[in-house]
Every structure is written in C-alpha cells, then in structure tokens.
Computed example of a mutant assay.
Amino acid sequence: MPTIPLNSPEVQYLAERDYRLRHLMQHIGALEYSRPESAFHSLAHSIIEQMLSMKAGRAIESRLRGLCDGDYTPEQIVKISAKEIKSCGMSLRKAQNLKTLAEHALNNDLEALAVLPDAEVYNELIQLPGIGKWTCDMFLLFYLGRPDILPIDDGALRQAFEWLYGVPIISKEVQSVVCSLWRPYSSTAARYLYRALNVGLVKEFGQSDVLWS
C-alpha cells in the first residue's frame, strides 16, 4: 500500500510553510492510502458517488458488483441495461453515463491518460457525459497520483478545510493566501484534509485547536 511518510519531501515542504497543516500531519502521522484498481473503476466510482455520501456510494457499488457477478468491468457493464444498473440505487442518467464510460473504455485505452499532462487529461475526460471538473480532479488525485491537485469543488474537502482554518476554501483570497503555500504539493495537503474527515477528527473535535493545544 502506498505511504506518505512524515519525512517525505512533500510533507516537510508543507510543514515548513503551513503550521496548521503541520500540526494536522503530525497528529495523523504517515498516511497510507489505496489506489483504485483501474482507470475505469476510478472514473466509474466518481460517477456513482457524485452528490452522494461515501457510504451511499459504496453501497451502490457493492450492489453493482453483485449484479455483475463480482466485478463491474467495462465488458460486464455493456452487457446489462441502464435500467438494471439503475436498480442498484442510482439515477437513470448516472446508469446511462456509466454505460457510455464502459463503451468508451472498450474502444479507448484509459490507462494511456497517465502519460498526458493534467490539462490534456481534463480535455479528454470532460467530453464524456457525467464527467466534469470534480470527476477529473478525483481521477488526477486518487488514480494518477498527480502532485498538485486541489479539488476545491469537493464538499468533503471544503468541510475539512473550514474545520482546520476557520474560513471557506472557496474564497479567492483564502486560496491566494493559504492554498498557494501548498504548491507544488497541493495533493498531499488535500489527502491529509480528507483523512482528517474520514477518521472522524472533524466530527470528534468541533474546533481544530485541539491539534496544537
């Protein structure tokens, strides 16, 4: 499993520039994370989870895997109808978008996106229905592992950021003052903010002051 140790260049760089983030990273420690099993699964997961909680998205994926005899590969998805996919708990539009993605994956090598610059990955993916900036951000961050992705449109990141800094990340002034400190390692900062939310720090401690009190 990939791990970001506290003595990694990116963590040390961020720790020197942002004391709040430094305390959060020290509190969490080395950050282990998993990678989606394929480019198709990464994009499909984002399509499924759009506008849903992580728990709801996982439940739908579990039902979809059951419908597809254990795994929802492009080959399996094109064989079943959008109506069958919808029965797993998603909207018909999402089901249709998932089928379009599967058809695209069978005719194009999604893994080849790994050699393209960030901007070209965006340009390639947003041509597909159901894929916008948020999905591209998730793909670049969690599948391709690009180092400088900051998905400011993501509700979970917004929640964790406001907990840690007491201000909204959507503010242009905040982005220029705080988020600019993270470049070129915004992805590592984002991963630690997501982890703070996922392990319950944001819920358990209403104020992030607990990290340095």
Results as ranks from 00 to 15, higher is better:
residue 2 P to Q: 09
residue 2 P to D: 12
residue 4 I to P: 01
residue 6 L to R: 11
residue 6 L to T: 12
residue 11 V to F: 11
residue 12 Q to G: 04
residue 16 E to I: 09
residue 17 R to N: 10
residue 19 Y to P: 10
residue 23 H to Q: 14
residue 24 L to V: 03
residue 29 G to D: 03
residue 30 A to P: 12
residue 32 E to H: 15
residue 36 P to L: 09
residue 37 E to Y: 01
residue 43 L to K: 02
residue 45 H to Y: 14
residue 46 S to G: 09
residue 49 E to F: 02
residue 49 E to Q: 11
residue 51 M to P: 00
residue 55 K to W: 01
residue 57 G to F: 03
residue 58 R to I: 12
residue 62 S to Q: 14
residue 63 R to H: 11
residue 64 L to S: 09
residue 64 L to M: 15
residue 68 C to Q: 01
residue 78 V to E: 06
residue 79 K to Q: 15
residue 80 I to G: 13
residue 83 K to M: 13
residue 86 K to F: 08
residue 88 C to E: 00
residue 91 S to K: 01
residue 93 R to P: 00
residue 95 A to I: 06
residue 105 A to T: 10
residue 106 L to E: 08
residue 107 N to A: 09
residue 108 N to M: 00
residue 109 D to T: 06
residue 111 E to G: 05
residue 115 V to E: 14
residue 116 L to D: 08
residue 118 D to P: 04
residue 118 D to Q: 13
residue 127 Q to S: 08
residue 127 Q to D: 06
residue 128 L to R: 02
residue 128 L to H: 08
residue 150 L to P: 01
residue 151 P to F: 04
residue 151 P to H: 04
residue 155 G to M: 15
residue 157 L to T: 05
residue 157 L to H: 01
residue 158 R to C: 11
residue 159 Q to W: 00
residue 160 A to D: 12
residue 164 L to W: 02
residue 168 P to K: 13
residue 172 K to R: 14
residue 177 V to K: 14
residue 183 R to L: 03
residue 185 Y to R: 08
residue 191 R to K: 06
residue 194 Y to S: 05
residue 194 Y to T: 06
residue 196 A to T: 02
residue 202 V to P: 07
residue 204 E to W: 03
residue 210 V to A: 06
residue 211 L to R: 05
residue 212 W to S: 07
